[in-house]
Computed example of a mutant assay.
Amino acid sequence: MDKHEDRQLEIALLGGGCFWCLEPAFSQLDGVEQVLPGYAGGKLESPSYEEVCAGHTGHIEVVQIRFDPQRIDFEELLAVFFAIHDPTTLDRQGNDVGTQYASVIFYQSQQQRTQAEAMIQKVAQLVAMPVVTQLRAASRFWPAEMVHHEYYERNPQQGYCRVVIEPKLRKFREQFRGRLKKAGS
């Protein structure tokens, strides 16, 4: 029997700009079992990437993270989240502009809400600027089309991946090297 078979996984639902940037970072963390790119917070049933990018559905690009709280807790995920995106820019990350790129935490429980509120205050003090990260109740998650899953891993030479994602990942790996999965896990 697998020693992890009886564990209870939890979910974090986070948006911090393009999901292509978030997915590869969270996927490398020890204790994270699955990261799916998708959409949340909007009014349209089963939205497409094109509809979300048009900015009229109310959805935000997010990643759904399934994690083992015995190996990594929600606060650690939040620390990574705030390190890999700019929570001080309203509805934008770099050249990605629009409400679909908002900084948002969709909390799944009162405990996640409390932890997120505390982390937002801490980050605001650290950066000495207002943090515009939205804190919203859990919302229906719509997985993105398969072409967006593991986008960076499948397209490392694509321009956006080389210019935008790779520098973020280098910084992330350096900052969180002690929290990364071991080779082969």
Rank of each mutant, 00 (worst) to 15 (best):
A116S: 15
L90P: 08
E51H: 11
V132R: 04
G58K: 11
Q157I: 00
A144G: 01
A54I: 00
G58A: 10
Y49P: 04
H149F: 09
V35M: 10
L36C: 04
P47K: 12
Q121Y: 02
A128L: 12
M146N: 14
E153F: 02
H56A: 12
Q34E: 15
P69R: 03
E50N: 08
S109K: 06
Y151D: 11
D86M: 05
I84K: 04
C53E: 10
A83N: 10
I105A: 08
Q115T: 11
A137Q: 14
N155W: 02
E117W: 10
L126P: 00
G42L: 03
Y151I: 02
E61M: 12
A79D: 15
Q108A: 09
G41F: 07
G55K: 06
Q70V: 00
V123C: 10
G98W: 06
Q134Y: 11
Y152R: 03
V131G: 02
Y101R: 08
V62A: 12
F74T: 04
V132N: 04
A144N: 03
S48L: 08
L77P: 11
I105G: 07
Q125C: 06
A102W: 06
V97F: 09
I72D: 06
L77S: 08
Q158W: 01
F141Y: 09
H85G: 10
L135C: 02
Q112G: 03
S103A: 13
R66W: 10
Q110D: 15
Q112F: 03
L36K: 14
T57V: 05
F74L: 01
A79W: 07
G55E: 04
D68I: 00
P87Q: 04
A137C: 04
E51N: 12
V104I: 11
S109Y: 04
R92G: 02
A124I: 01
E76G: 01
A137M: 05
M119A: 13
F141D: 08
W142D: 03
N95Q: 13
D73T: 00
P156Y: 13
G55T: 05
Q134W: 07
G58F: 09
E153L: 10
R113V: 00
P37E: 01
M129H: 13
K43Q: 14
T88F: 02
E145M: 10
Q70C: 07
E61K: 12
A40T: 03
V80N: 09
M119C: 08
